[in-house]
Every structure is written in structure tokens, then in C-alpha cells.
Simulated assay, not measured.
Amino acid sequence: MKTLRNIIGVTLAGLMLVAVPFDMQAQSKKKATAEKTAEVKGMVDAQEYVFKAQTVIPMSGRTRQITSDYDLKVTKEEVVAYLPYFGRAYSAPIDPSKGGIQFTSKDFEYTATPRKKGGWEVLIRPKDARDVQQLTLTISENGYGSLQVISTNRQPISFSGYITEKKETKK
């Protein structure tokens, strides 16, 4: 009987030693998730971030992975888009080097709305970009996002990627 108690005691002690690291891992994971959510919320509220596109999802055609550095930079002063375009354009650009979605807007409407299941819905309406009517950026709490671009002379196109901090550039 005494041996059985010793075996049960040693087994329970062993289980406690195994369970404690898993609990600590779960707590550190929750802490990291909370920190990431706070960081993303800070970037969205401060209106200082860069959306890095990884995948293009055109209305017609196939989904494509992007290998180059395409992005959408958002600040309080301006929105700068450097994104590719695949799809039907209803009018060709005069300058062939302006084939993608490339513009800088200093006059725009910016609305960030929290979503019910977490994250944010950001609506950007440039007033001084001729071709682009609206950019809708859906951002999750962990920083992943999708961007839909609605143009005047082109089919809508979507991008998926992530947001990151805007790096300061030296002038």
C-alpha cells in the first residue's frame, strides 16, 4: 500500500513538472498575441503603416504570388501606392511605365472602423488620384490584411499581405 502511494505521488509530481511548462508557454503566447494586437492597433490609430502585398487576386484570371516589393504606404499626410495590376483596363494609360496602381495622394478621406470579430476595416478615398476611387483595407488583430482597390477605368482587384511599421527614410 505504501509503495502504491509512492508511485502515485511520483506520477503526480511528474505530471505537474510537465504541465507547468505548457502553462507558461500558453501564457507567453497570450502575452505575445496581446502585444502584437496593441502594436497593430497603435499603427492603425496613428495612421502610420505600410501594407506589404504578397498575393494578387484579380477579378478574372488566376491568383498570383508577388515576388517584388509592392506596397501601400499610409501616413497622416499622404497615401502612396505602388501595386501591380492584372485584369481588364477600360482605357490604356498614356505613359506605358504607369501600368500598375501607382499614385500619391495628399488629399484623402481615412476611416478606420473596428470589426465585430476583431481587427479593423480601413476605408481610404483619395480625392486627388484620378483613377482610384476607393481602397478598402481589412486588417486582422495579428497584422495580416487584405486590400481591395476600386478604380474608375479598371476592374476591381484584391491583394493579401500584412502591415508593418513605416520605416523612416533619410532625406
Rank of each mutant, 00 (worst) to 15 (best):
residue 1 M to D: 11
residue 2 K to G: 05
residue 3 T to H: 12
residue 3 T to E: 13
residue 4 L to H: 14
residue 8 I to N: 06
residue 10 V to S: 09
residue 11 T to E: 04
residue 13 A to C: 14
residue 20 V to C: 03
residue 25 Q to T: 03
residue 25 Q to H: 08
residue 27 Q to I: 09
residue 27 Q to C: 10
residue 27 Q to N: 08
residue 28 S to Y: 06
residue 30 K to Q: 07
residue 30 K to S: 09
residue 32 A to W: 04
residue 33 T to H: 10
residue 34 A to P: 07
residue 35 E to I: 04
residue 36 K to T: 07
residue 40 V to F: 03
residue 41 K to P: 08
residue 44 V to T: 05
residue 45 D to M: 15
residue 46 A to G: 09
residue 47 Q to W: 12
residue 49 Y to E: 01
residue 49 Y to V: 11
residue 50 V to G: 05
residue 52 K to L: 15
residue 54 Q to A: 15
residue 54 Q to D: 11
residue 56 V to C: 00
residue 58 P to H: 00
residue 62 R to G: 07
residue 66 I to S: 00
residue 66 I to R: 00
residue 67 T to Y: 00
residue 71 D to R: 11
residue 73 K to P: 06
residue 74 V to H: 06
residue 78 E to M: 14
residue 79 V to S: 02
residue 82 Y to K: 03
residue 87 G to E: 01
residue 87 G to I: 00
residue 87 G to A: 03
residue 90 Y to N: 04
residue 92 A to V: 13
residue 94 I to M: 09
residue 96 P to M: 05
residue 96 P to S: 09
residue 98 K to Y: 02
residue 101 I to G: 02
residue 103 F to C: 13
residue 104 T to Y: 06
residue 105 S to L: 12
residue 109 E to Q: 08
residue 110 Y to W: 07
residue 113 T to K: 10
residue 113 T to L: 07
residue 115 R to K: 10
residue 120 W to N: 08
residue 123 L to D: 12
residue 124 I to K: 02
residue 125 R to F: 12
residue 129 A to C: 12
residue 131 D to F: 06
residue 133 Q to E: 13
residue 133 Q to S: 15
residue 135 L to G: 00
residue 136 T to N: 09
residue 136 T to I: 15
residue 137 L to C: 10
residue 139 I to Q: 03
residue 141 E to N: 14
residue 141 E to L: 13
residue 149 V to F: 01
residue 149 V to N: 04
residue 149 V to T: 07
residue 151 S to L: 15
residue 152 T to C: 05
residue 153 N to R: 09
residue 155 Q to F: 09
residue 157 I to Q: 02
residue 159 F to L: 02
residue 160 S to K: 02
residue 162 Y to K: 05
residue 164 T to H: 05
residue 168 E to H: 08
residue 170 K to G: 07
residue 171 K to T: 15
